[in-house]
Each structure stands twice: as C-alpha cells, then as structure tokens.
Design a protein around this nucleic acid. Structure first.
Length: 874
RNA sequence: GGACCCAUGGCUCAGUUGGUAGAGCAGCGCCCUUACAAGGCGAAGGUCGGCAGUUCGAGUCUGUCUGGGUCCACCA
C-alpha cells in the first residue's frame, strides 16, 4: 500500500534548516506608508522564492495544504478571499514554526461552468459529431442567438484558451492578497497530470469493482442533457397544483379510486397505484387492478409503507418516472417501464405499448412532442372534456429537485451510466466512511455533523458519467460485435502507462483507427467524468501520486483540507472516499471549514442582488493587509458580514504598526545586555504570555484568537508602554544611560516579536517594517518563543506593574481631559492614592510616569480600601 | 420530519474549566501633544432573546419556547 510515510515518520524530527535570504534593506522612512507595499513585496517574494517548497524536507517537517482549486469561470468573490486568507495565515504560521510548507494552487477549469462561459464568450456550440478543424476561428462578434457549431477538440481548445486567461487574472489577485502559495506547484484540473491521475484512479476503481456501469433511472437535466449526481441537487420551491381524477375498478361493483397528482402529464406512464398497507380505505383494492382514465391502461393497486395516508388522497400514482420515490417503488414492487419522456424534456412521439385502446392512442397523440409544461396543460383539458377531472386543479407550492446549475426541474430518465460505490447502497461501506469522518480533525468540530448527515442520507452510488464535452473522458472503449451491437459489458481499458487518453481519438491496443465504429471494431465511451471525479483527487494530483513518488512520500497524506461548508457533501466527502479506496487512509489529518460571507443585512451574498463587492475594488480601496485583517477577525467556521468598517480598522492597525515601529526605531539600538527596569520586564513578561496564547490558538487553527490577543497587546504597547518609556529612552539626562538601554532593548525586542506575531495576518506591513532594521524576510523567521523571550528579558517581570502604571497614566489623561487641557500640559504636582501593593508599583515607575505625564513632583500616598488608583493634579 | 449554528450596548463582534459583562465602529466631549490629525485622549452607553431549572452564585451548564441562518430527509 502506498503512502506509509506517516507511520515511518522518525520519532524525533530534526529542525529544518531555513536558508537565510537577503532582502533589500532600506532606511526607516520619514513618512511610512502602506501604498505600493503589495506590488513591491510580492515581486521580492517571488524573486527570492520565499514560499518555495523545500523538496528535501522529510514528511514530519512538512505542512501540506490541500488548497481548494477555485472554479475558473468569471471572477473571484469576497467569499473566496475570506477563506483563502484564513488558510494563508495558518500556512504562514506553520512556515515560521519551521515547517516546509507545501502550498500549491490549483485551478478548477474542468466542467460545466467553463463550457457555459466559453459558449457565451465565443458564441460557439460544441457538436461532437464534427471533426476537428485546425483552421477554426470563433466568430469575431459572438451572436448569442446564432452560435457557431464546432468540433469537440476545437471546443476544448477554446476552453483551454479562455481558462488560461482567467487563471492569470486569478493568480494576480491571489498574489495581491498575499497568499504565500508556491506558484511553481500550480496545477489545473483539466491538465495532463490531472487527467492522468483521474483516469488512473478510475481504472483502479474499476479493477477493484468500486466503479461499475449500469442502466438505471437517473436524474436528468433536460437543458444540459446530462445526468447529474445526488450531490449536485438542490430543492427549489415551485408553484404546482394537485389534479384529482379517478381510476376505474376492474372488479365487478368495485369503486373507483381517486388520486391526486402534481404530474398529470405522466398519466400515460402510470404503472401502478400505491397506498400504505395499513390504510383502511384501500384494503379492498390491494391486489386488484384499476384502469386509467383517457388511456385505458390496467394497473395494479399495491401496498408500500412509503405511501403517506395524509398526502393527497392517500394513494399515489406511480409513473416511470415522476420523481425518485417513483423509482423506489418501481424497484421495490418490480414494476414495468412505460417511458414517455425524451431526454430533451419532451414527450416521445410513440405511446408506450401498453396503451392499446383507440381512445388512449388518440389522447396520447395530443401530447406527443410537447414539453412537460405544454403536455400538462393539454392533458388537463382532455380530462376536463372527458369529464374525468374531479374539480379544478388546486394550486400548491412544493419543493422540486433541480440541478444546482440548472433552471428547469430535473426529470428521471433511464440511461446507462458509470457509478462509484460510496456507501449509498452498502451499509458496511457507509459505516467505514462515517468512521473515517470521525478520525478527521474538524475545525470547528461541529462541522462534522454535516458530513455525518450527508453520509447517512446517501441513497445511491455516486454517478460520475456526464454527457458533456469539456471534462476528463472516461478512459474506455467498447467492442462492437459482428452484428454491429456495442458490448458494454466488456470495456476495453488502456494501459496505465498510456494515460491520459481520449477514447474519441485514441485507438485501443490491438485495433486500428479504421475499426472505429465498424462491426468487429470498437467505439469510445462518449462521456466525460463528473468534475468532482477529478477534484476528489486533488491530494493525489498535487502531491504527485505515481508521477513523483518522492514528492508524494513527503507530502501525502496531507495536513489540512481548507474549504467551504457547502462542498462538504461533494468535495470533502468524495476526496475522502477516493483516498479510502486507493490508499486505505484519510487524505489529510485535519480539515478547516470556513464560514459564509453575508451582506450587511445578514443575507448570503448573491450575485443576483447586485450588491456584490468585487475583491479588486476592496483591495484597491483598503489595501491587502486591511482586507486580510477583516478575514482573520472572523472566527473559524463562523458566518461573517462583509464589513468594510472592519477593513478600515485593519488599515488603521497597519498604519499604527508602521508609525509605532518607526518611533521605536528612532532610538539607537543599545549594546547587548539585560533588560533591567521593572516596567520593561513587566512588558516582556506580558508579551511572553501573548506569545503562548497566540501559539496555542494557531496550533488549534484559531487564527482569529491569535490575532485578537496580539492586537490587544499591541495597542497596550503603543498607548501605555511607549508613552511611559519614551522619555527615558531618549536618555536626555546622561545620568540614566542604564535605564535608557533597558528601554531601548525592550522596545526592539518587543517590536521584533510583535512583527513576527502579526506576520501571518499582515504580511506586507510586517515585511516592510522588518526591512527597515533586520536582515532577511520576516516570513522566513522563526516564530517567537515565550521561553527565550523570558530569558532575553533577563528575568520574569511582574505583569501587574504595567497594569497599575497604565491605570495611573489613564487617570492622568482623564484629569487632563476633564480639565480640557492638552495631554502635554505640564503638571507641577501629582498626587497618587492607592493601597500599599499598588503604591509600591507606582513608586517603581515614578520617573516614567512623571515623564509621560509631564509631571514635576509625584507624591504617592498609601490609603486603605482603594481598589484602584486616584490621582489629583495640581 | 431530523440535525447543526447563531441570538450580548445603535452597528459588528469578544467573553476558553460558571463568580454580578469587554472591544472596535457610529454618536458625544476634549486635544492641531516633537511616532501617528484619513490622528490621539476621554466620557457615556448593555443585565447578556423569553421562561423554567441546577448552583452559594450563570451571559457561560440543563430543559423548553421564540426569532434568524444552514444542512439532511421528504416532496403523490
């Protein structure tokens, strides 16, 4: 079995050597600015390869990210930026922890969205019956009403051309946002490697019996004319109506049976009536037959516990096929097939053979060729004219299944399709997959319930074949018998070494091209695979499964799958399934699920409302770090409002970081030595605690908490600490150079730590400041350690000292504010009253407080029962 | 029908083993202070959706109800 690297992981991993990279160093600017940082530092990072994956790192030293490949159709939206930034903060943290971060980007350019986009953009339509035209050029002016037909190879060429342009735009945006992706690892889901991986995995599924083909009723989109999978469904509330009419009993003296249906047009496809076995109203009918109105077809009345007595008249008309319940009954009760629907959504020309009466055939002729909607209108008229309609149709609203990308209700048609087993028909497999889900570490944990309910609700295997053009072809051919019939039971498979193949142009081993379509020859499978059949293999594609065993052993199974909650049922589940089959293990140890972006009025963002804010606009207005700040403030998995106010806060933070850093660096660096002043040591002690909190938050994938703690400390650092020590740090009085040195050492040490703590969220600002006074990239530095910080601080300070000093400072400000004087207004005498412990603290900070408050004399009075500090200015 | 998340000052949100609520934004007042005026400082503002429990004590645990959001199932 492949991928045993984790089990063989050495018990104690050696620290990874991080190369020292020289970056351009610059002086502290007079007027620091955020403008232009994105372009400047992105260029440097790319040139220096700051985020390049170290291929020599052992698995234990690697942190590998199964980045979601964004669908390359149109533009990225704020929701993408939101989730990707959150993941990037985690990647940056791990990199600073010394991990070799494997962080590729993929583009999902495979599938329907691209097809649709290309059709619209170029004004073309794919016609698979055409041969490749090497000179084909799309119309200069696309006409949406008159699309030009082109061959499948030509169409695919256009798809590739279009997506290449889109991918460039996407990469530029991601780089502007500062994703620390290794762009040399980029893959595309329609690329050769992805197709090879996808086809190889499918062939192995086939060989092991995990993939199979069968002719069965499937959900069918009549617009796209393709089968769709359970995972691609969504319910939509639609207006409908109950139509009531009766079937005549064939028993002597038997009573008619009234049914109510929303699909009267399927009456000619009726194969049975079904009621609940306990329903007393129909006891006498069970086992008997009835005859349909208009069509005179005799159908049985049967019992099944799925029938609901309280719905309609309590007895259902089973047709082939009105919905998935019909399919269930049809299977369970072994009913015949009477198809009336074509794949294009119209009723077929010929009536089902069961309709034999002259009247029945005449009635059907009225419906033939009509769309479902037209047929329904006509049959209601026919029923009414025949006096069969019992009352008028009763309007209702009910949920109807749609393909999530479609705009007409799904129909059920019988067709031959490929499936991959997923536990939908196999209780044991389902249990195994549920256990796999439990072994995965979910962030946040409650997201696992979505996975569980999906797996528990599976009602069929995974339908992977699609009757489309732009996708990974099923790598199969079928033999053609001497009589010209296709033998679907004995597919011809290619050798793995020949992958990827396109069966519509490649020839199977042992055949010649001339034999295509001929008796005794072969025919290629015309279908492509569902886009998820390829996307479910992103770990294998990105990590180089079979193609690059060395890389694979260093990166797989991956560490984390970040993704949105809406694709747990598709992407997460199917990836887990494929890995289970192929590697008998989880594809990653952890998954982090991000939340939704909501409008300011708390509705999910949607394009149709016209309130979409584009990432480019927002980044332009606020700057990348500000937008990242907004994304990183949102708790993992929590839905968040799109709040530009929060971005302004982020921008203010970044500007403050520039200014505070600039100020701290105006003091010359002191010679190496201890931090001696109590308030300086108190600051470092506090900072050490912040480092511990931020580290454990990041370890638990909680970037938001790490940021919150760091930010809170930073404002205290600016508002209280810097204010307190700046007078001393200036060292205007030469008599206290030791105090100045202590402050200068603490300032630089704290700044160094703060920049590293902020680096995952504010990569541009921190890099800018780092370049003013340090060598290399801040993003290649090691994450701060609380222990070494405490050692550097010379001793463990007392954090309470800083709290008390801050309180006094606050009281001084309050008094000055109340007196409506400037904060720089001099104070001749300051009286501080506090109980003994606090008074002792105040005395230790006496000089700093006088400096910060511009106070000449500070008098400390010990008083009893004072919970805080009181000050009086004179 | 089953499940999950959310409900804290006007707005956006913190509140990690239960001990009588915090921040930012907006509004208000002050300060053009030698890091920062697209800034700084300060004051004010909520009893934590309702009800009932557990507890000496609950925003923080239990039950229930209400109102949002979401997932799954059903959909004759």
């Amino acid at each position: 079995m492949l991928g045993g690297s984790l089990a063989k992981r050495p018990p104690c991993a050696l620290p990874r050597l991080v190369p020292v990279i020289e970056l351009p160093q610059q002086a502290v600017p007079d007027k620091p600015t955020l403008d232009g940082l994105e372009q400047r530092w992105d260029a440097v990072w790319q040139a220096e390869g700051i985020y390049r994956f170290d291929r020599t790192a052992e698995r234990a030293q690697v942190f590998s990210v199964d980045t979601p490949p964004p669908t390359v159709s149109g533009s990225l939206h704020m929701g993408s930026v939101f989730g990707y930034v959150q993941t990037d903060t985690l990647a940056r943290y791990q990199r600073m922890r010394g991990k070799a971060v494997f962080y590729p980007m993929g583009w999902d350019d495979n599938g329907l969205p691209t097809e649709r986009r290309v059709e619209n953009h170029y004004g073309v339509r794919c016609d698979p019956s055409l041969v490749h035209d090497p000179d084909f050029v799309p119309p200069a002016k696309p006409d949406p009403k008159k699309r030009v037909s082109c061959s499948r190879p030509n169409f695919v060429e256009l798809c590739l051309e279009r997506t290449e342009q889109d991918e460039k735009v996407f990469e530029d945006l991601w780089r502007q946002v500062g994703l620390s992706v290794d762009w040399s690892l980029t893959y595309v889901t329609i690329g050769e490697r992805a197709r090879r991986t996808s086809q190889r995995a499918f062939l192995r599924n086939l060989a092991r019996g995990e993939a199979y083909a069968t002719e069965a009723p499937t959900l069918w989109d009549v617009t796209f004319q393709t089968a769709v999978a359970q995972a691609e469904l969504e319910d939509r509330e639609q207006p409908g109506a109950y139509h009531r009419y009766a079937f005549r009993s064939t028993a002597a003296g038997g009573l008619p049976v009234s049914i109510e249906t929303t699909r009267p047009e399927l009456l000619p496809a009726c194969v049975a009536l079904v009621a609940h076995p306990d329903d007393e109203r129909y006891q006498s009918h069970f086992g008997s037959t009835v005859v349909s109105p208009l069509f005179d077809v005799e159908v049985p009345v049967l019992a099944h516990e799925l029938a609901q007595p309280d719905k309609g008249s309590g007895i259902a008309m089973v047709c082939t096929f009105g919905d998935t319940t019909d399919v269930t009954w049809w299977r369970a009760l072994d009913l015949p097939v009477r198809n009336v629907l074509e794949r294009n959504g119209r009723l077929r020309a010929e009536p089902p053979p069961a309709i034999v009466s002259e009247g029945g055939r005449a009635a059907y002729a009225e419906l033939a060729g009509k769309t479902v909607k037209q047929a329904q209108a006509r049959i209601v008229e026919l029923l009414r004219e025949a006096g069969e309609l019992d009352g008028e149709p009763r309007p209702i609203t009910h949920a109807v299944k749609f393909f999530e990308k479609g705009d007409r209700p799904l129909e059920v048609v019988t067709s031959r399709q490929w499936y991959i087993r997923n536990g939908g028909r196999d209780r044991d497999l389902r249990e195994v997959l549920l256990h796999r889900g439990k072994d995965l570490d979910w962030h946040p944990g409650w997201m696992q319930s979505r996975y569980d309910s999906w797996v528990e609700g599976l009602n069929g295997d995974w339908l992977i074949s699609r009757q489309r053009f732009f996708g990974v072809p099923l790598p199969l051919w079928y033999p053609i018998s001497a009589d010209g019939s296709i033998d679907h039971e004995s597919p011809i498979v290619p050798a793995e070494s020949s992958l990827p193949i396109d069966p519509s142009s490649d020839v199977p081993p042992g055949f010649t091209a001339e034999q295509r379509g001929a008796p005794g020859g072969f025919v290629g499978d015309p279908d492509v695979m569902d886009t998820w059949a390829t996307s479910s293999l992103t770990p294998q594609i990105a990590c180089g499964w079979e193609d690059d065993p060395d890389l694979f052993s260093r990166t797989f199974p991956m560490d984390v799958r970040p993704q949105g909650p809406e694709i747990i049922r598709t992407w997460l589940f199917s990836t887990l399934l494929r890995s289970h089959f192929e590697h008998d293990r989880l594809p990653w140890s952890d998954t982090s699920i991000n939340g939704w972006i909501l409008d300011p009025d708390r509705k999910k963002m949607s394009k149709s409302k016209g309130n979409v804010v584009t990432p480019a606009d927002v980044l332009q207005r606020h700057g990348s770090d500000a937008v990242r700040y907004w994304a990183a403030c949102a708790r993992p998995g929590t839905d968040t409002a799109l709040d530009e106010g929060q971005m302004k806060v982020g921008r203010r933070l970044a500007v403050k970081l520039l200014n505070a850093s600039k100020f701290a660096l105006t003091f010359p660096a002191a010679a190496p030595g201890p931090v001696t002043e109590p308030v300086d040591r108190a600051l470092l002690a506090r900072l050490a605690a912040v480092v511990e909190e931020a580290s454990s938050a990041f370890d638990g994938y909680d970037y938001a908490r790490a940021l919150e703690r760091t930010e809170a400390f930073f404002w205290l650092f600016c508002d209280d600490y810097i204010e307190l020590v700046k007078t001393r740090a200036y060292a205007e009085g030469a008599d206290d150079s030791a105090g100045a040195d202590s402050a200068r050492r603490a300032l630089r040490l704290a700044l160094s730590v703060l920049l590293r703590l902020f680096a995952p969220v504010l990569p541009f600002t921190t890099e800018e400041v780092w370049s003013w006074w340090q060598r290399g990239s801040v993003h290649a530095q090691s994450w701060p350690e609380a222990a070494s910080l405490r050692e550097s601080g010379g001793a463990t300070g007392d954090p309470a000292l800083l709290t008390v000093a801050g309180e006094v400072l606050g009281q001084i400000r309050k008094a000055k504010s109340n007196a409506k004087v400037s904060m720089r207004a001099p104070v001749a005498r300051l009286e501080v009253r506090a109980e003994r412990d606090r008074a002792a603290y105040v005395r230790q900070v006496d000089a700093d407080l006088r400096g910060a408050g511009v106070v000449t004399d500070l008098v400390v009075l010990e008083v009893e029962g004072n919970e805080g500090v009181d000050v009086t200015l004179a």
